[in-house]
Each structure stands twice: as structure tokens, then as C-alpha cells.
Design a protein around this nucleic acid. Structure first.
Length: 475
DNA sequence: ATGTTC
């Protein structure tokens, strides 16, 4: 991008020039290398978000940002409940896509003899791939209960323990959900997909803690060097996708009626207070609950696999973070606490120490922020900071972020070569799709270390631990 | 991301 349009606000924090019709500032979290690589479309999408009615600044993009449908991926946009809007493109197609990490109580050496067997069991028992379903078929009633109750419903169905819920945003249930606002078609697509990974960048990894950067916080999070962890990255499958597909055209069509001048149609939105805005909010909430229940059921299946092969393992939920949401939260604005609707699209909520929502054992340290690296590279656990409330509406980055489109990656890499290289590095990779491996090649992504270092230098997160993969199951 | 071009 053109750096002349930027003002440096602080370390790794830049403001782009405010031009008409922007209603508020737009801020980029990046170092100079990331800035140079940032494409103009991402910046113009930020400007579009900052031009919407009722926006409360700053609109931000995270160091892993790139352009998306309407809103940038890696973008944060907060809106006033009275004058503001909610946008289906601001949440994205994979509603509440996110990551949860489990601790196991095992060390690296416990896996030595059984890693192949464990990899086979995980690949066999956790269905993955496009359009792939699982063994559980939901009745209409179960579907509606799941969409209202999220992970809390799943725990009630014996897919986990009540203690799991304390370690999930909003205690595992988005309360503004209403399954009646979700189309039959969306529900139909989900009937047999609960407890499945999906495809694309979704994965299930068995990892070990390679390095701890902050001993005290790591201890509070329940992790130590060489500890085995399991991370699950997936979302709301066909259901969330269908909700976005259903509501986007309705928002495009109604914009004029609500007096909203859309900077472009991809950024379609509706006033939060309007009937369409409320309907979308309730449908999106059902999508969030679907993703939370999905990750909860996968956790249950993973626990069963470990119980068979490593009965000593004790799989506890460290934390579950969502990446694609619009969440109602409180922030201090001009000296007053104010409720805002915060869109995070490809961005992670990252609450600082003493946030009321955190479980008591994390209060002193901030929220665990889980950063999934690209396939075969490092992942990170960070912690939220106090400063992020003011800097980024308590948000941080979510992953490495693509630098290469799927199409370009397919042309540039061969899945088989990628698989061989990972195996040479001692990583067991299980995937039903060789093509998918090429699309997810590590070189199609930004350097995750650079991304998290920017997040730390800018003050929106603190680096706690680095994780390395041992087993990777891909869709 | 996605029953990968309803």
C-alpha cells in the first residue's frame, strides 16, 4: 500500500488518512514488512467499514489481515446499538469459526510408541472433508435445542463436562440466538454434520509445547514445556454458510429502505434495531451455538480416542475462541461504559486481566488467545492485555493469514510434496484431500511469528507459549 | 469457509 497515507500512532500501529465518507478512524496493526505487502483492497474495505452508520472507532485490522467479502478478514468494527448496523459480511460465511485447545496431562514421550495409532484413530473417528457428515443425526427438536444451547446443550447430552463451559466465550452459549430465524435449508445441511471438521484451513492437531515465554501465565493456563495439547479448528459447517447466503441478499435489498448508502454491495448490513438486523443477529447467534456445539462434540470424540489409546490422558479444555462473530460487549468510550456490537471477522476476542467475563483462575493474566499457525508450522498461545480494550476493542490476530489465494497455491504446490516434507519433519499428516494440502501449503501463508510479534509490540497481546505439531488431521 | 459453478 501507499505509505504516504499513514500516520504512525505507536509501535506497529498506524492510522490511515481519514477521507470522505469515513465516519471514524481506521487503524492498522502491522510492521513495515506487513504494511508493504498489504493490498489496497484490504485498506479500501477498512474505509468502507469506517463509513457505515453508527460506527464507533477505530475500525482496526490485525497483522494477519487480508481482503475478504465486504469486511477485511482480520478486521474489527464496533457499532452503537442505537444508530449502528450489523453486517453479515462483517461476520463472514463461516460463522464462529474458531479454535479450542485441550491440555492432556501427557508429555511428549508418552506419544512416542502410539502416535501412528493415535493419528489413525483421530482421522477415523473425527469426520473431515467437504460435505462430509458424521454418525449423529439430529432430530428437528435436537437441532433447535442445539442452535439455542450451543456447547451447553452438547454438555447436557453428555458430550463433555460442565467444567468445559467455564472455558468458552459466553460460557458456551450465545443467548440472543433464535433457531426460528434459521432457514430449513441451513438446518438440513447440518443434520449429520455435528462433530465434523470440514475442510479448507480447518484441522485437528496434536501438538507439544516447545517453548514457554511467560512461566506464571503458562502455569495459570495449565501448560508446561513438552506438554501434549490438542487443538481443534473448525466452525459452523454448512449451517453458518447457509445463514450468510440467506441474509446477505436480504441486507443488500433492504439497505435503501433503511436509508443506508452502501459503499459497495458486498458490505451489506442492516440497522441493529431493525427487524432484519434483529433477525440476522438471532440467526447468527444460532450459527455461533452450532460452531460451539460442533467443537464440543469433536472434543468428546477426541476424548474417546485418547481414552482407548492413552487411558492416562486427562483432556481438559484450556479455552475456546471464536474468530467470526458479532458480540455485544461493554467498553469505556469518552469516560462512560457503553454497550457496543463488535464485529470480529478473522480476529480473536482478547480480554485483558480483570475482565468480569474471565474464569477466576485467569483473572490476573488475561484471556487465553489461541493462534493457529499454518499447517506444519508453529501455533501460539497469547494472553489478552489491558491496553487492547482501548487499542482494538479487546481484539487480537487469529492466525498466520493467507498471502496466496487457494487457486494460486494449487498452481504453485503439489499436495504430495507438501505431505512428504511434513513427514520428513516428523509430523504425521492425515488428510482425505491431497489437493487440500496444496491449498494449505505453509508458503501460502504469512509468517505467523511476525504476526504475533506485531500483536505483542503493539500491546494488544502478550506471547505465552509456542506449540509444534506432531499429528495433523486436515479436511 | 462452502453439498468446491443454485
Amino acid at each position: 500500500m501507499n505509505l504516504e497515507l499513514l500516520t504512525k500512532l505507536g509501535s506497529c500501529r498506524w492510522k490511515i488518512k481519514r477521507i470522505s465518507p469515513m465516519n471514524t478512524d481506521a487503524v492498522i496493526f502491522a510492521d513495515e514488512k506487513i504494511l508493504h505487502a498489504l493490498d489496497d483492497k484490504t485498506v479500501s474495505q477498512m474505509r468502507d467499514v469506517a463509513s457505515l452508520p453508527g460506527v464507533v472507532g477505530p475500525v482496526c485490522i490485525m497483522p494477519d489481515a487480508h481482503s475478504g467479502y465486504g469486511f477485511p478478514i482480520g478486521g474489527v468494527g464496533a457499532f452503537d446499538p442505537e444508530k449502528g448496523v450489523i453486517s453479515a459480511g462483517g461476520v463472514g460465511f463461516d460463522i464462529s469459526c474458531g479454535v479450542r485447545t485441550l491440555t492432556t496431562g501427557l508429555k511428549k514421550h508418552h506419544l512416542k510408541e502410539v502416535s501412528e495409532k493415535l493419528a489413525d484413530s483421530l482421522f477415523k473417528n473425527i469426520p473431515s472433508g467437504t460435505g462430509v457428515g458424521g454418525k449423529l443425526k439430529l432430530t428437528n427438536n435436537q437441532m433447535d435445542e442445539m442452535l439455542s444451547g450451543g456447547a451447553s446443550w452438547a454438555v447436557g447430552q453428555k458430550m463433555g463436562f460442565p467444567d468445559d463451559l467455564r472455558r468458552i466465550e459466553n460460557n458456551g452459549v450465545f443467548r440472543q440466538a433464535d433457531p426460528s430465524k434459521v432457514s430449513k435449508k441451513a438446518k438440513q445441511r447440518m443434520i449429520d454434520q455435528l462433530g465434523t471438521l470440514g475442510s479448507g484451513n480447518h484441522y485437528l492437531e496434536v501438538q507439544y509445547v516447545e517453548k514457554i515465554f511467560d512461566e506464571q501465565t503458562a502455569k495459570a493456563f495449565g501448560i508446561a514445556e513438552n506438554e501434549i495439547l490438542v487443538s481443534i479448528h473448525c466452525g459452523s459447517r454448512g449451517l453458518g454458510h447457509q445463514i450468510a447466503t440467506d441474509y446477505l441478499p436480504l441486507m443488500v435489498k433492504s439497505a435503501a429502505k433503511y436509508g443506508i448508502k452502501l459503499p459497495n454491495k458486498d458490505i451489506a448490513c442492516a440497522p441493529i434495531k431493525s427487524s432484519l438486523g434483529q433477525d440476522y443477529l438471532k440467526a447468527m447467534g444460532a450459527g455461533i451455538n452450532c460452531a460451539l456445539a460442533n467443537r464440543q462434540r469433536i472434543t468428546h470424540l477426541v476424548r474417546n480416542c485418547f481414552a482407548d489409546i492413552l487411558p492416562k490422558a486427562d483432556l481438559k479444555l484450556l479455552y475456546d475462541v471464536s474468530h467470526n462473530t458479532c458480540n455485544r460487549e461493554e467498553f469505556l468510550i469518552n469516560g462512560h461504559m457503553k454497550t457496543l456490537y463488535v464485529h470480529r471477522k478473522g480476529a480473536t476476542r482478547a480480554l485483558g486481566p480483570n475482565s468480569p467475563e474471565l474464569p477466576h483462575e485467569f483473572k490476573k493474566y488475561g484471556q487465553p488467545v489461541i493462534i493457529g499457525g499454518s499447517m506444519g508450522t508453529s501455533s501460539y498461545i497469547l494472553a489478552g492485555t489491558t491496553a487492547s480494550a482501548e487499542l482494538s476493542f479487546s481484539s487480537s490476530c487469529h492466525g498466520a493469514g493467507r498471502v496466496m489465494s487457494r487457486t494460486k497455491a494449487l498452481k504453485s504446490f503439489k499436495g504430495k510434496n507438501i505431505q512428504d516434507r511434513l513427514n520428513l519433519n516428523g509430523i504425521i499428516i492425515k488428510s482425505g484431500s491431497i489437493r487440500g494440502l496444496a491449498e494449505e501449503a505453509p508458503k501460502a501463508y504469512k509468517d505467523v511469528e511476525r504476526v504475533i510479534n506485531v500483536a505483542e509490540q503493539a500491546g494488544i497481546s502478550k506471547i505465552i507459549a509456542r506449540l509444534k505439531p506432531i499429528i495433523c488431521v486436515k479436511g
